[in-house]
């Protein structure tokens, strides 16, 4: 009995004088190694799972066409690229995602009222993508537009989130 008590205090790490025996050290070392091994395997597995190539419709750069194919003040849908190409009244271009900023439904351009309408929760957006009617919390996302050899290219990998429309988002040719 007395022996047992002595043993207990000796092994008790929380006692006033924490004396670490060699055995304790090895135990801790094993635990540490276990944690490291666990982290390694978890990390590798996660990396393996997330390491996917982006699958974009029609590649990274989407060729939209020549600028003068798009009259001023029009909205042209590109269903394959999942975006609208918009030419504002001042001639500036805007490539806007057709995913509603609320829950990702595909918005529709309503020619009569000149607004984008989401069929899911009836959010409405102006031609520049600003929210007219909630529940959408922010303006529609836009894509980067570049010009090569006079043609417009939309970079589907460069999606830009924004709160509202600003002039600087427009591209002029």
């Amino acid at each position: 009995m007395k022996n047992q008590k002595k043993l207990n205090t000796k092994n008790n790490v929380n006692s006033e004088e924490p004396k670490k025996s060699r055995r304790d050290f090895i135990k801790t070392a094993w635990k540490g190694l276990g944690v490291v091994a666990g982290l390694e395997i978890t990390g590798l597995t996660l990396h393996y799972l997330v390491d996917r190539k982006e699958t974009n419709y029609g590649g990274d750069l989407f060729e939209a066409g020549l600028p003068n194919e798009f009259p001023i003040g029009t909205v042209t849908p590109f269903r394959r690229g999942r975006f609208f190409l918009i030419r504002m009244n001042d001639g500036g271009f805007l490539a806007m995602s057709l995913k509603c900023s609320h829950l990702g439904c595909s918005i529709i351009w309503d020619e009569k009222i000149k607004e984008f309408v989401c069929p899911c929760h009836s959010s409405k957006f102006s031609i520049a993508g600003d929210v007219i009617n909630p529940p959408a919390p922010r303006a529609l996302d836009v894509f980067e537009i570049s010009v090569t050899e006079g043609k417009l290219f939309v970079n589907l990998n460069k999606k830009i989130k924004r709160d509202e429309f600003e002039k600087s988002q427009l591209i002029y040719i």
Binding site: R82, L98, L103, S106, H121, P135
Partner: peptide, 27 residues
């Protein structure tokens, strides 16, 4: 058809409570 959303587009019924809540509060 990724281009055309049905109207209305609803989550599965067991998540509809959350979607209903989303009509009233910030997501």
């Amino acid at each position: 058809n990724p281009g055309v959303s049905p109207n209305p587009a609803k989550a599965p019924w067991y998540f509809m409570g959350i979607q209903e809540l989303m009509l009233h509060f910030h997501p």
